[in-house]
Design a binder for these strands. Structure first.
Lengths: 198, 198, 198, 198
DNA sequence: TATGAATGAGTTTTCATTCAT
DNA sequence: CATGAATGAAAACTCATTCAT
């Protein structure tokens, strides 16, 4: 199965190159350019993804899958006794570091008319996981009572990209989490969290 | 003069058409397409804006100018006795309605390598106004102590676009404002404001 | 209406170039090649015909129209007292000279999946005209009794192209006409000739 | 040897697939497509035929060979007392059924610049055979006096393809044979033949 | 001055052909 | 030997920009 291994490696390299090129040159990043960045010829790129839209969609789906996995791991941890709010933050925080690429890909997808209907299943899994995290966080009294899993999905969807720098993105997340936790039933001291009211 | 009026009207229609087309078709909206939507021929479009980059930059500058004006009006109102936090919300809220177009234009500008250096003055005016609003809001004890004018700029910059529906955008703004006001020194009852923690 | 005149001339030159290039290089004649032969840039070609299929279809429709006109002129002549069989031959004969291009275009159209449904009207007119010619020829006793207008359409459709030389194409037509007239009710003296009744 | 048999079978399947694919998709039928239709991988296809031109030429040569064989069998039959005209029709008639594929392959060959010089020998044999058939038919007085073997070759070359349906092709052949036999020296009643002049 | 046809460089996409497995 | 992934030159098509009218 040597060829398969080669092909799989190429696929991964292509998706990575796609993210990088789209992030730095926008939706107008050329297929040749992406192919070159991936170290393959255009033909190879087209063998894996028949159109540019397919390529972008795949790059997006690939990221979605990882987010879903990370959510489900967070759910496992909460089952194992982890603190729900911390796990929610633990899902969101690492995403900020790659949100530049993620958002660029999402924008390019929108520009190409990709609606992501094929990822409905993934999104459902994400929703289900988020709902359990939210429920657990509510049980712990860590969230504003009106917060729902839709709000987390909202954050995931609107996470800012390279239009602002990494510092500002961290601050964005902080403000957002503060919005989620404001007015919670049981304020407490959590080391590592920004002091929310001093 | 009639011609001047004509030209001005054309300019306005072109900028509006630009926003609409960019919003619905992304940065790849063509010059012909924009011209047609504006009801003029391409040649006329090029008479007003020598390149596509100029056009997008103008569309963006146009919006920036309005935001600056709205900030400065808010400052006036605060001087006249208005409540600073309400004025801040009053600046942000109407922007949500057009954030679809605004974000799309911003993204297109980024894709075309427009950095907006020519709007530095406008941005400075906005910053100055926001700083005064923030200071007034802090004086009133309406904001979390660590909130700065940069945070408002952050919201302005990252305001979500058509990737989510208008309802979700309202909710986004609510969460964000909650993040800004969480842990404020003097909580109070403000009629018309969303109940922040019951 | 200067531009229109220019555009019309370009359109005609493009269709002519299309026929020539398709005839000499087959369906694989490139759009660039056709454009160059027409003395325009590719963009102009695409402005007139959005896809290659549209171009080929137009080239074919253009020819069909001329055939229809020639049929209808023949009908007029028969009304004016012309001999129907002669007019039928007069329609077919000049087509042989251009059947190289015509057939090549038809083949290319087939290869591109063009079915010519949009020419149904033209074909109907052609059928109607042919039917009148055939009826008149039958009245004159000049055709084999079982010959119908479909048979003439058959000849039009299957007229050979450049796979054989012009001489051979003339011979083909001769054999075919002989097939149509064989066994006619009132043979007359036309020794092997076009001489229709002396 | 097993391998030889395999190879021969593969070769036959490839040529058949070539005819079918070229017939349904034109000269632009791809090598991958043909390979898949033949149930082999492209590599195997290229092992048998080093270029696409070679493949098409082989598909054409294969058919030519069969035609030659059929002509020579007809000659044998005439020697054995068969009626020449019937044998000529017997050669042409079955070709009509496959003329769709045959013509498509011929057209594709022309588009690829294949001239068929390598089949000169086959063609000469065909010509020789046809000449004998024609001579025999003339001896029987069954043909128009001016008909030569070139005329039969003409029919073979211009036999219509899928541009018309099978019925129309039968009619085409009927008209053509009528053209060949019109004005023959000794008309007679041949059961099974269409009544040529009542 | 407005128009919209023409331009042509650049992009996406295809496909005959090669070659590592 | 068969396989099918990779190659890259060439084709189809787009679109910012120019310019004759």
């Amino acid at each position: 199965m040597g060829l398969r291994a080669d092909a799989a490696r190429n696929r991964a390299r292509i998706l990575e190159a796609t993210r990088v090129q789209i992030a730095s040159h926008g939706p107008s990043a050329g297929m040749d350019q992406i192919a070159q960045a991936a170290g393959v010829a255009v033909g190879t790129l087209y063998r894996h993804f028949p159109t540019k839209a397919d390529l972008i969609a795949a790059a997006m789906a690939d990221r979605t899958r990882r987010v879903v996995e990370s959510v489900e791991i967070a759910v496992e941890r909460v089952h194992g006794g982890g603190r729900a709010l911390e796990e929610i933050a633990g899902v969101l925080t690492p995403l900020i570091d790659v949100s530049g690429e993620d958002r660029a890909v999402k924008t390019a997808a929108a520009a190409l008319g990709i609606n992501g209907d094929d990822q409905a299943g993934e999104r459902m899994r994400a929703r289900a996981g988020l709902a359990r995290l939210i429920a657990a966080a509510h049980d712990a009294g860590d969230l504003h009572p009106d917060v729902t899993s839709d709000d987390i999905a909202l954050l995931l969807t609107t996470m800012p990209g390279d239009e602002i720098d990494l510092c500002a993105r961290d601050r964005w997340l902080e403000l957002m989490l503060r919005g989620l936790t404001a007015g919670r039933r049981m304020p407490d001291r959590r080391p590592g969290s920004r002091d929310p009211g001093e």
